[in-house]
Amino acid sequence: MDHFTEDQLNEYLDDTLEVPAQARLSAHLSECADCRARLAALQTVFEVLAALPDEKPERDLAPSILQNLPNSRSGLGWKLVFAFQSGVSLGLLLLYAPIGVRSTAGILQRLIGQVIRLEIRLPAPIDLHFSPPILLLPHAFSLAGHVPQIHVTLPVGITQSNIPIWLILGIAASLLFVIGNYSLIFNSSSRPKK
């Protein structure tokens, strides 16, 4: 009679063999000392593992675990809030982008000694005070020959002289806003503090 395989003996002990196979193996075991010995060795493993007692932790782990719990802003709702905030921040960045293009063009011009100017021609009825410039780009952007220029009506409070300050403040505030909320909502520290 063929002996049963290790896999079959394992599945027999795990009680996952099909009923006919289980019956065949039971019958075979009554006749085969070799398979009985192999089964007994496996059973010993089951027994010693079952007898292994649990141990008590040496200290109460709860206080340090609770102390290290991340901010509770982890639910879907907060992630949506984060997405909204990111959108607002991106919008702010885009709002400043055309102004930045102008400043950058000026810097490039000074750096490489070439005339690089961009021109945005605004449709007459649209007032830049209330419309983010970037929204106008697709239909207002044009190159004026070799001398592109930007003509932007600056929002209230922004003047020619303080553009760089507004630009830096706006971008920095937007980035800090997004990064700060990311760390709060997705707190990703993987190694806990002891």
Binding site: P57, E58, R59, L61, S64, I65, N68, L69, P70, S74, G75, L76, N187, S190, R191, P192, K194
Partner: peptide, 21 residues
């Protein structure tokens, strides 16, 4: 190892908290 088991338990609970949903 006891200390490592404590640290791993702590990390497991933190991971569970983040995946509480």
């Amino acid at each position: 190892e006891c200390r490592e088991a404590e640290d791993a338990a702590q990390e497991a609970f933190l991971r569970a908290y983040r995946a509480i949903q």
